[in-house]
Amino acid sequence: MSAVVLPIPRAMPQVLTLTLRTLRERWRSTFGWGLGLVLIGIMQLAVYPSVATSSEGMQAFVDQWPDALKEAFSLDAYTTGAGFLNAEMFSMMVPLVLIAIACTGAAAATAGEEERGTADVLLSLPVSRGRVMAAKVLATVIAVLLVAAATLLTIAVGAPLVDLDVGVGDLTAGIAMTTLLALFFGAVTLIVGALTGKRTVALGVGVGLALAAFLLNALAPMADWLEPWQKASPFEWALGDSPLVNGLDVPMAGLLLALSIIGVIVADVLYHRHDIGGR
């Protein structure tokens, strides 16, 4: 009886193999979201010169709006470079697209495999659930970072061409805060996915909470009873200090990063305890 016992494969090649496979699977949707965001960026940049040349009239028009509305749509400095980008890109489009990528990736990570039934094949391989979690998180973070980088590059290259005045450092800070915001909601989605094993539930909770936080942040200035609650919105944590003007809000960036990491750890613990459902 000289049975040869096969060893547990090494961690790095295993995690990288699974990360690459996941990225390849998510490549099309990531590319689609990224392309959309880049095109919107180009379109907004193309519109900027006409906003800037009619800046007095435009600002006067915007100034007539109620304060609450102005604040809700980040219109307070609409005709400055940073103000314009804030209103047109960073108050809604960039965060929502990055959140969409993070949440779909996180929902597909464990719950998606389970729902499709492929978790049985994946988890019958000599790979621990911790490594699966690591690879899936890595793939999702890479996807979010790629789209964030493409958006940053588009605006950083395009802004000087249309005389849009925004510092590259501030722009990077804005993208960074938005990316952290997206990763935070991704972590929330990951937790629900690891707990329930249901992709749609995870996606619903993650995106639902993100939309609620978005609306809370946008509507709070308009209703007195809602205003104290604005502080509870992660959108306010990430973008409340106007990173496009004031640069990176280090404490808030640290908070979002820490919460995201804690979220991944919680998801990992839950995933280890989870019974993988049959189809």
Binding site: P9, R21, G117, T118, D120, V121, S124, P126, V127
Partner: peptide, 14 residues
């Protein structure tokens, strides 16, 4: 699992 081959009853593949 490194030393086991498993064929699921309700096989789902990528």
């Amino acid at each position: 699992r490194a030393n086991t081959g498993y064929l699921p009853g309700d096989l789902a593949l990528y």
